[in-house]
């Protein structure tokens, strides 16, 4: 039974102790740089010279590399095969067989797309590996993001493992009553109602209880709320965030300027 739904790995590191907003800003600005920045090799450079060192600094290097390879390798293989063979307008043929021919334009396009996706996925991965989702949401709602939005996100992350545990208990309870959950398809379909019924009923009851509980804590009261949890932030990090925002804006500006000329 999976006991966690988030990628978060609790460790002590410089990256973990950064303010969540700083890490979020870093993720977004890296993505903007990768997509709009100059040069074919910029995304690869960002990955190897920014993201990988940061993951090592955050003591999540192994998990970072493992997860990003596992997620992206199949995608990359697919991209390279499809784009190098079928990229429209490809003229420079590298090699060909039967009715297919690979063009260098296709390979370049595949490389560009793949490395951009690599930066996009892995910069969020770094954020998620080093930041607990509820810390992120707490910080965001403290800064003015609607509390109901952060409730929806964090409660979902918490409810799903709970429901999984519940589903296991229900399955145990019904098997103890002689319910055979294995076997052929018809048997499995027949055994679905005794399993899904209690799960749905109890979830509905839970929803009502949650609603009452958060209502009882003045969740919907339209006032500015204070935060119980103190999430550390520093002047230096704020400056860093402004620098990243400026860099992102400059990159977008550069892209617009290029397209105008």
């Amino acid at each position: 039974m999976p006991d966690r739904l988030s990628f978060f790995i609790p460790r002590e590191s410089r990256v973990h102790s950064l303010n969540p907003l700083t890490k979020l800003a870093l993720a977004f600005s890296l993505i903007i740089l990768a997509f709009f920045g100059p040069g074919l090799f910029l995304p690869v450079a960002l990955y190897f010279f920014v993201l990988v060192p940061l993951s090592l600094l955050g003591k999540v290097g192994k998990e970072f590399l493992q997860t990003s390879f596992r997620l992206l390798l199949p995608l990359f293989a697919f991209l390279f095969v499809m784009q190098s063979l079928f990229y429209p307008g490809g003229e420079t043929v590298i090699f060909s067989f039967w009715i297919f021919s690979a063009t260098s334009e296709g390979v370049v396009f595949a490389f560009r797309t793949a490395t951009r996706i690599l930066v996009m996925v892995s910069s969020f991965l770094l954020l998620l590996l080093t930041t607990h989702p509820s810390t992120l949401m707490n910080d965001l709602s403290r800064r003015g993001v609607p509390a109901s939005l952060s409730y929806i996100i964090t409660s979902t992350l918490q409810i799903i493992p709970q429901m999984q545990a519940r589903a296991v208990t229900i399955q145990d309870a019904q098997r103890s009553r002689g319910l055979d959950t294995g076997g052929n398809l018809i048997n499995r379909i027949r055994s679905l109602l005794p399993l899904v019924g209690p799960l749905v009923f109890s979830s509905l009851v839970d929803v009502e209880e949650r609603a009452i509980a958060i209502e009882a804590r003045a969740f919907t009261l339209p006032v500015k709320k204070t935060s119980l949890i103190d999430i550390p932030d520093s002047r230096g990090e704020a400056v860093l965030r402004w620098v990243m925002a400026a860099l992102s804006l400059m990159t977008i500006g550069y892209r617009i300027w290029l397209s105008l000329n």
């Binding site: 519940r166 229900i170 309870a173 098997r175 103890s176 009553r177 109602l193 209690p198 009923f201 109890s202």
Partner: peptide, 22 residues
């Protein structure tokens, strides 16, 4: 033996009735 077979010999009442009523 499978759980379903053992149910012939052992009746198991779970703590929370809502885990089984449908």
């Amino acid at each position: 033996r499978s759980v379903a077979e053992l149910a012939n010999r052992i009746g198991f009442i779970f703590q929370n009735p809502d885990d089984q009523l449908f």
